[in-house]
Amino acid sequence: MRVKLSAMRVRNDLVRRIEELSGQDLLACYQCGKCSAGCPAAFAMDLLPSQVIRLVQLGLVEEVLNAKTPWFCAACQTCYARCPKGVDLSRIMEAIREIALQERGDYLVIEEIPAEELAEFPQLAFIGGFRKYTA
């Protein structure tokens, strides 16, 4: 399908919200792909990190909200540390997660984690996971 680009789409409310929540200038990204190239979790993602920004630049936020990628971002900051434009992609991912959590509910349901595993996790994994995966 052909995506209809328009001023309305590329500046839609969700794009603005992602910019506001993340504090990042999406158009600062010139799509060099260094974030994707160095992302340690990229192998598990359905969209490359740079494609996430690209889709948001085009106003295609729904596709990003439907993607797995934001949930595989561990906020390790490798992308941001090396980004030639100083774009903090981990903040953009967090903003996307936030919108998804608010619109679609929690990504992680505690009951789904086996009790014995739950007992083994260090607190920081557990708390970190809940911070990232639940509203």
Binding site: P40, F72, A74, C76, L108, F121, A125, G129
Partner: peptide, 12 residues
């Protein structure tokens, strides 16, 4: 300095 996955462990 590669990331080990951190809290991804609880879900993935």
């Amino acid at each position: 300095a590669e990331c080990c996955g951190a809290y991804l462990a609880v879900k993935s």
